[in-house]
């Protein structure tokens, strides 16, 4: 995480959606306010099925914002980004930004999905067959 400022200034960059600097607007905008307008590069490396877990038991709760605290509580056990978003009822885009911050701080570990499309691993596919049969 190289970005120093916690909250990027609304610098009028035309490529940025206007609502990033429009913290006071309607309900759709609220989730972005939670992220302070951050769209860190790291957030895009988190997939909707990346699995995350809190990496430590002791947390200085005063040092994390409420939404991040909710994430830390929900990922005491391994959980996917999509499940986190569903339980918190906030869009995945937002969860990814908050998570990437927590990963950067070392509070959360993230595991990328299995690269299923490129990597033919018959043992994995066989395990999937067995798992489905057991349902």
């Amino acid at each position: 995480m190289s970005s120093g400022g916690y909250r990027e200034s609304p610098d009028g960059d035309p490529k940025k959606p206007v609502f990033y600097s429009d913290v006071g607007a309607g309900p759709l905008v609220r989730p972005y306010a939670m992220t302070g307008g951050r769209t860190r590069a790291m957030a895009t490396t988190l997939d909707m099925i990346s699995v995350v877990v809190a990496s430590r038991r002791e947390v200085d709760w005063a040092a994390v914002q409420p939404e991040s605290a909710s994430i830390l509580k929900l990922c005491r056990r391994p959980i996917s980004v999509a499940e986190l978003a569903a339980h918190m009822d906030i869009p995945m885009t937002v969860v990814k930004v908050l998570l990437s911050d927590l990963v950067g701080k070392g509070f959360v570990l993230a595991r990328a999905p299995l690269p299923a499309a490129e990597n033919p691993q018959l043992n994995v596919l066989q395990a999937v067959l067995d798992g489905i049969r057991r349902l």
């Binding site: 430590r56 056990r77 391994p78 595991r111 994995v124």
Partner: peptide
């Protein structure tokens, strides 16, 4: 995972498929 068992690296986490 169980509560007392926090992975120390991401290798200890399950991987997902979709």
């Amino acid at each position: 995972s169980v509560d007392s068992d926090i992975p120390t690296t991401e290798r200890g986490l399950p991987q997902a498929l979709k």
